[in-house]
């Protein structure tokens, strides 16, 4: 049988390959990443794009949700203050309605309720980061203004009925605002400003038309309940955002684990492979040295 007399050069080829292998393994160890080019593992590279996309979306939602929670909490505490102002107005009206007050005291009640009206209007015009929160989509227009030209005065809504939603990465839509007209200018007896303006008009002359005043006080009471109901929907949104944010955070943790498993080099495994490659290289070098030193041809034996 004939042999290839240049077999040492084939061994050198294997030596090159062993060295390239070591180089790759060393790169994995030093970078900590197992996939450094697309061709190494095409499926994992594609999967990695999708995982990172979800992780990033989750991350971005977590940040957005804290921003949104701030805004919703301001709305909630504003409505809390409105409720306590209205409670105070109801107790003032109730005491004015019981017929024991003189004219000047009734006028004083009218003034106090008027003050409460101003306070509630200013609460209804609350802004968060420069944006009115009860104006619907009209966040740069003062939502409520009162005209004193008529008696009772008339408070008008300058916003719109626009409702914003925040969409979670899972597609859930969370309501972000309640238009101001729905809270403060409900239809019929649900109108906060209507009831307050009526009461101010009832008491401002000093004489009380009890039937009228009792009816208006009753209306304010109804309006108060209506505000509380609207507040519940904001509270619900806060709960939903918090829950969604928690779910997304735990989702993100799992995705990061999956992504890490996919891309990170398994140090123990890579080290073992590296050590094997080094052994192989040493063995090949020894073989080549051996073959070279024995000057492998019959010519060395000829005399």
């Amino acid at each position: 049988m004939r042999v290839d007399p240049t077999y040492v050069s084939n061994l050198v080829g294997s030596l090159d390959q062993a060295q390239a292998n070591e180089q790759q393994l060393t790169a994995e160890l030093s970078s900590g990443v197992s996939i450094t080019s697309l061709g190494q593992n095409p499926v994992a590279a594609g999967e990695n794009v999708l995982l990172l996309n979800q992780i990033q979306q989750d991350d971005s939602f977590t940040q957005t949700s804290s921003l949104v929670t701030g805004q919703l909490q301001v709305a909630d505490s504003t409505l809390g203050s409105v409720v306590s102002q209205l409670t105070q107005a109801i107790s003032l009206a109730t005491s004015a309605n019981n017929g024991t007050m003189n004219a000047s005291n009734v006028e004083s009640v009218a003034n106090q309720i008027s003050g409460i009206l101003d306070e509630v209007q200013s609460l209804a015009n609350t802004s968060y980061q420069g944006q009115y929160i009860f104006g619907g989509g009209q966040t740069s227009t003062t939502p409520f203004t009162t005209s004193t030209a008529t008696s009772p005065s008339v408070t008008t809504y300058n916003g719109d009925q626009d409702v914003n939603y925040l969409q979670t990465p899972n597609g859930q839509k969370i309501q972000l605002n309640v238009p101001g007209s729905q809270i403060f200018l409900g239809t019929g007896t649900n109108s906060v400003f209507g009831a307050l303006n009526a009461l101010v008009a009832d008491y401002s002359s000093g004489t009380v038309n009890t039937a009228q005043a009792v009816g208006d006080t009753q209306a304010l009471n109804t309006a108060l309940n209506f505000v509380s109901q609207q507040r519940v929907s904001i509270d619900n949104s806060i709960t939903q955002v918090t829950a969604a944010s928690d779910a997304i955070t735990s989702d993100q943790t799992q995705l990061i684990t999956a992504q890490t498993n996919l891309m990170q080099a398994n140090v123990a495994q890579v080290s073992t492979q590296l050590s094997l490659a080094e052994t192989q290289q040493t063995a090949l070098e020894d073989v080549i040295a051996q073959l070279d030193s024995s000057s492998n041809s019959l010519f060395s034996k000829l005399q």
């Binding site: 979306q57 921003l67 914003n164």
Partner: peptide, 21 residues
């Protein structure tokens, strides 16, 4: 580019929180 795509569309999602910011 993959990360750029996500960041770009996420920036619209963030804008949902406060569209006039």
């Amino acid at each position: 580019i993959g990360s750029d795509i996500t960041t770009f569309f996420s920036s619209f999602a963030s804008l949902e929180a406060n569209p006039s910011d």
